[in-house]
Design a protein around this nucleic acid. Structure first.
Lengths: 322, 322
DNA sequence: TTTCATATGTCAACCGGTTGACATATATTT
DNA sequence: AAATATATGTCAACCGGTTGACATATGAAA
C-alpha cells in the first residue's frame, strides 16, 4: 500500500501537520524535525500525491499540447522544445496528437478540461472547431488562428514567403509554382502564399498555387504534368519540398541547373537528412519559448494584455537546390 | 467560477447524488431525469473533475512516457503511436524528454510518481538509473533493459543486424564497418553489433565497430580517415547513415558502386526525406501496440506472467545506397 | 518579570466527486 | 395483498493533502 502523510508522520514521530509543514516549508520547523521527516520519506519511498494537492490548490501544473502528430519533423521539434521549457518551469505536458481530425481534437479538448489543465497550446486543425474559447482557460495558438481572443505565435510567414520567392526569381526562375496546404485552414502560413503572389506580381510573373491535403505525391505529379516547363517550386513545407525533389529527379530534371526547389521549416531532422535542400528556417525554439511565456503569463493572470500575435523572424538557408 | 456537481444538481432540479448516478450510469435513473441532467451540464458547460475522481478511485489513467526527444524521427514516430493507442483506450500521455540526461530522467521519474501515473513507458538512458524498479508501478521498456523485473519490447535487433551485414557482403563489400551508439547502454540494439560481428566472422571478415555519442560527424570523419578503404557501412541508426552518405559524397565516393550504406529504423520521415537509403525498418507501430498491451495488462494486474522480452520482426528495405 | 519567538500538536473544514446505507414513494409483478 | 422493482433523496464517510485557528511548552529578548 502506498505510503501517505500519516505514515510518514508515524515513522518520523511527528504529527501529519508537521509533515505537511516540512513538505511546504511553512510555519516554524526545527532542523532535527525536518531531518527526521526527510529520512522517514526516504525510508518509506514516500512521494506527495500531487492529485490530492491539486484538488485543494486548484492548480494542476498541467499543460495540454495539441498538434497533429509528433511524427512530423516540425511538430516533433516544436513539441520537444515546448515540453523542455515547460518542464524547466515545473509544468507537465499532456500530449495530444489530433491527426488533423476534428472529432479527435474535440475529444482532446474535453479530456483536457476534465483533467483541469492550467492551459493549452494548440497548433492543430481548426476549421469547424469552435471549442477553443473556453472561459477562464488560457490557450495559445501556434501557427493557427483559433479565436479572436486567443494569442497566436508564428514565424514571419510573409517575410519567409517573400524571401523564398525572391530567391527563386533572383536565380533566374520564371515559371515558379507554390505548393501549400489547404487554404481553408486559418493559419498564418497562408501568408507564405500571399507573399509568393505579391512578389510574383511585382515581378510581372504569373503566380500559380497548388494545394495539398494528405497525398502530396499525387498533387506534385499533377503539377509536373500540367506545367512541364516549371523551373522553380516554393514548397511551404520541407516534406513537400523533398517529394518535389524526388519527382523532379524522376523526370530527369537537373537540380539546381534546370530546376530549383526551396522549402520551409528547416528543422534539425531535415537539415540532417536532406542538407542540400534550400529552405526558410523557422525559429522553432524561439516559437516554443514565446508560446510558453505568453501561456504562463495568462495562467498567472499577469498578461490579459498579451499581444495577440507574435511574429518571429525566419532565416533563409541557401543550399544546393537553388 | 467553474461549475461543480452541486451546481448541475441545482439547475437540473435533482440531488447531487442523482447527478453522480447519471455521470456514472449507476443505480436506477429515469429517462426524464437523465435528460434534465445532461441539459444542465450542457447549459453550465460542466466537465467532471477527473482530479477529484482520480483521488477517490485511485486511478489517474495517466501514462508517463520517457524518451530522449521527440525531435528524433524514430522516437517521434514511436511516441505518436504510443499516444494514439493510449488515447484510444482512454489513457492520457505525460510526455517527458530526458535528452539522455540521468538527472532529468530521475527528475521525471519522481514527477511521475507524484502524479500517480498508472504506468510508465521508458526508452531513455538507463546507465546508472536504478529508480525504474518502483513497487506497484508497472513499467515497460522499449529498446532498453531497465531492470530484471521490467518487460522489454524491441525489434529483432539481431536479425536486423544480420540482414544488414549479410546484404553488404552479398553486394561485394569486404571492408565493412559498423557504427553504433555507446555500448555501455544496456539496450537490445547492442545485438545489432553482435550480429554484425558474428556474420563478419562467419564470412572470414574482420569486424570493426565505431561508437558514437553525440557528435556523429567527428566519428564518421575519423572512420574514413583511419580506414580509407572502407567499402560498406552498417549504421545502427538512419541519422548516422545519412551523415555517412554525406561524408562519403564529400570524399568523392560513388554510392553504391564504390561504397554502400545501410541504416536502421526506416521511419516515415526518413523514407520521405532520404528514400534512397537502404535500411532495416523497425515495426514502430507494432512496438507501440505491444508496449501498450503489456503495460495495460500489468496496470490491470492481469499479466504478472507477461513475457519479459518481446522481439518483433524487422524488414529489410533495399534502396539505392546498396 | 513580561513579552515575544520558536516549535509542535490537535482539530476540523475544505478541495470535488464517489458511493453505500437507508429512507420514502410509486409502479409492477407474483 | 404481498413482494419486488423502479426512482430519487438524505447523509456521511472517504480519497490525500492543505491550512487556519488555537493550544501548550520552551527559550530568548526586552
Amino acid at each position: 500500500m502506498k505510503p501517505k502523510i500519516s505514515d510518514v508522520a508515524k515513522v518520523a514521530g511527528v504529527s501529519p501537520t508537521t509533515v505537511s509543514r516540512v513538505l511546504n516549508n511553512r510555519g516554524y520547523i526545527g532542523e532535527e524535525t525536518r531531518k527526521k521527516v526527510h529520512e522517514a520519506m526516504k525510508q518509506l519511498n514516500y512521494f506527495p500525491n500531487d492529485v490530492a494537492r491539486s484538488l485543494f490548490i486548484k492548480k494542476t501544473f498541467l499543460i495540454g499540447v495539441i498538434f497533429p502528430t509528433t511524427t512530423n519533423p516540425f511538430y516533433g521539434q516544436l513539441i520537444f522544445h515546448i515540453e523542455n521549457i515547460a518542464a524547466s518551469l515545473g509544468y507537465k505536458v499532456l500530449l495530444c496528437n489530433s491527426q488533423g481530425q476534428e472529432d479527435k481534437e474535440r475529444s482532446y479538448l474535453r479530456m483536457l478540461q476534465r483533467n483541469q489543465v492550467d492551459g493549452i497550446i494548440a497548433g492543430a486543425h481548426n476549421r469547424g472547431v469552435k471549442e477553443y474559447d473556453i472561459p477562464n482557460l488560457p490557450v495559445v495558438g501556434v501557427d493557427r488562428y483559433l479565436s479572436e481572443n486567443i494569442p497566436v505565435v508564428s514565424s514571419d510567414n510573409y517575410d519567409g514567403g517573400r524571401q523564398a520567392t525572391q530567391l527563386l526569381i533572383n536565380k533566374g526562375c520564371r515559371n515558379i509554382i507554390h505548393i501549400n496546404g489547404p487554404s481553408y485552414l486559418e493559419t498564418p502560413a497562408n501568408l507564405r502564399r500571399k507573399a509568393y503572389e505579391d512578389v510574383m506580381k511585382d515581378n510581372q510573373l504569373n503566380p500559380v498555387t497548388y494545394e495539398t491535403e494528405g497525398d502530396n505525391q499525387a498533387v506534385i505529379k499533377q503539377l509536373f504534368d500540367e506545367i512541364p516547363l516549371v523551373d522553380g517550386i516554393f514548397a511551404s513545407d520541407d516534406l513537400i519540398a523533398s517529394a518535389v525533389i524526388r519527382e523532379a529527379k524522376l523526370r530527369g530534371r537537373n537540380i539546381p541547373a534546370d530546376f530549383k526547389v526551396i522549402g520551409y521549416d528547416g528543422t534539425e531532422t531535415t537539415r540532417l537528412l536532406l542538407p542540400e535542400l534550400s529552405t526558410i528556417q523557422q525559429p522553432i525554439r524561439e516559437i516554443a519559448e514565446k508560446t510558453i511565456e505568453i501561456l504562463i503569463k495568462e495562467i498567472n493572470e499577469e498578461g490579459d494584455d498579451s499581444q495577440m500575435e507574435t511574429i518571429l523572424p525566419v532565416r533563409l538557408i541557401e543550399s544546393e537546390t537553388t
